[in-house]
Design a protein around this nucleic acid. Structure first.
Lengths: 223, 223
DNA sequence: TTGTGTATATTTACTGGTCGGTATACATGG
DNA sequence: CCATGTATACCGACCAGTAAATATACACAA
């Protein structure tokens, strides 16, 4: 995005190959578990070359997450749009696709969350800022999507989806049981359906969304 | 719980002091970020003594989480019982108390989840098994509590609560914004209220819980 | 075309320090 | 004496980061 950097082999810059190697290793093994020597070896370069392209390991970690930001968001959008049906079903589609992905043996949870958990003692770390921004982008996309559908509490609903999503990342990683993602998807679909302006398929009620009052009072976004 | 081990100073066995020091350090800094030398120093002993009491660092990590199991569960139960009102409010009380705790500057998320995230590349690690068992105990307690209240889908509801809880751990740790826990509490309360056998304060419907059908089909626990 | 300067890119070899874990000896209390 | 602890000193491996030399590419001048 900033430095042009010339080609070295077929199509890949050296920097890209370093980030690709770092991404694989950091995601598979963890940040502190992987040394820069290992990254350099996997990228087919020497450690000194790595330090020519990155000022420090922390910068490399940040580049790893930076590189996952857009692809991840695109994947979620794709899962949403690729699921037929009404809004609740489309939201649930994200969770069901994620459950399928989580059953792959190499799946190890959400790289952003795992990095933030591992570096929790360094709150200002650039990688954590990138992770926070990533999740905020996702939440904003959800909120806009809900708002376009005419949902009143789109803000809070988006936050709830994020909580269920990240909760399923954590729980599935711990138990290695992807069915929790289907549970989360069901809960998400139910919350979305309850927030829809049109009473869904349930017997119609007088007021469209009478249950919104309770929560909005406990959650007026302190900051 | 297993070895009696004699006292060394006032009231504490050496082993307990080691575990206490390890707990503080591992929670505050992370597992791989803390060396055994640091733990030994903080416990006021030498490293060799640490290795007299624990076969390996992995054992020490397991002991750290083992020691947090019962106190953590007791705290959740206490928060639940200490909140007045009906079931949804009591469940929400857990989240509100947790939000208060999360605003403490030394709060760093859930030690069980953070350990599982950091050791995700070692699925069989004893500490991860302890963490999984801990979360299962909490989920079981929730399920039994819901079942006693006459809720039909107590199993799934308990899983949803766990997802919201662990989701809020992850999200609040990333954003350092405890208000997400209040959002999670509101969502939890709403889901519990919707599952109650008695239609809550909303206008009565013909069937007590008509919305259960959608989710039960998507979540029949594959394992 | 040839030579030279310069910025980019990469190498080998190495630094001081920390990692988990241990060998050996010494203390102390039953 | 012997079991239980504790202390000093050390191990090889690995850690993040660096020095110095060099290879490569391109610009511009003779």
């Amino acid at each position: 995005m900033s430095a042009p950097s010339p080609k070295t082999r077929e199509g890949n810059t050296t920097r890209e190959r370093i980030v690709a190697a770092a991404a694989k290793l950091f995601y598979a093994e963890g940040i502190r578990a992987v040394g820069v020597d290992t990254v350099a070896e996997k990228a087919g370069i020497t450690k000194r070359t790595l330090y020519y392209h990155f000022r420090s390991k922390d910068d490399l970690v940040a580049a790893y997450l930076e590189g996952r930001d857009q692809p991840n968001l695109a994947l979620f959008r794709q899962w949403f749009e690729g699921t037929p049906g009404a809004l609740p079903a489309k939201v649930e589609g994200i969770f069901l696709n994620l459950a399928r992905a989580a059953r792959h043996p190499k799946w190890k949870g959400c790289g952003f969350l795992r990095t933030s958990a591992e570096l929790a003692n360094l709150p200002g770390h650039p990688a954590i800022k990138i992770g926070a921004a990533h999740k905020k982008k996702f939440e904003r996309w959800l909120r806009d999507t809900f708002a376009e559908a005419g949902i009143a509490g789109a803000d809070e609903l988006a936050r709830q989806m994020l909580l269920l999503l990240d909760g399923s990342f954590a729980v599935v990683l711990l138990h290695r049981d992807a069915s929790y993602m289907e549970t989360a998807g069901a809960a998400a679909a139910r919350l979305v359906a309850a927030a829809l302006p049109h009473p869904v398929s349930v017997a119609r009620t007088k007021r469209p969304t009478p249950r919104t009052g309770r929560a909005s009072q406990a959650n007026s976004a302190p900051r």
